[in-house]
């Protein structure tokens, strides 16, 4: 069963997840559960939108890295969008931006996913 606490939608076989305002251990795990559930349903394309997210703590980051690992293991795709500057900088600091495309908006991310670039 897909976690109902996470705001998500499916667009052309792409799952768009809207992250909470604060990504800590609990919120990170909620995201992970949703992803796990879609991966189990053989859905492998994800956009995680952080436009509503003010703070991502280091535990949240570790969980996000775990999510990326799982998607990549399934040969899936994941894009991040809507990052505020501080969170963008944080992803730069930990080196995530080298592995995951960071797009300005959810729309951009979905379009890029659709185009398969």
């Amino acid at each position: 069963m897909i976690n109902q606490h996470i705001n998500y939608k499916e667009i052309d076989n792409i799952v768009v997840l809207h992250a909470e305002n604060y990504i800590n251990k609990m919120e990170g795990e909620n995201l992970e559960k949703v992803c796990d559930a879609f991966l189990a349903k053989r859905t492998y394309k994800f956009v995680i939108d952080f436009s509503g997210t003010d703070i991502i703590n280091s535990i949240g980051i570790s969980i996000l890295i775990g999510i990326i690992e799982k998607i990549k293991e399934k040969k899936g795709l994941v894009l991040f969008s809507g990052l505020k500057k501080v969170n963008h900088d944080i992803f730069d600091m930990v080196g995530l931006s080298k592995h995951i495309p960071l797009l300005k908006t959810e729309e951009e991310a979905v379009n890029r996913m659709k185009s398969g670039q």
Binding site: S58, I61, S62, I65, G66, I68, E69, K72, V86, D89, I90, M93, V94, G95, L96, H99
Partner: peptide
């Protein structure tokens, strides 16, 4: 430094983030 998987380490970023911020 990144582990063999290519992705960053999962833990131990707290102090690094504070320093960076």
């Amino acid at each position: 430094a990144e582990p063999a998987s290519g992705l960053p380490h999962k833990r131990g970023w707290g102090m690094e983030l504070m320093k960076g911020l």
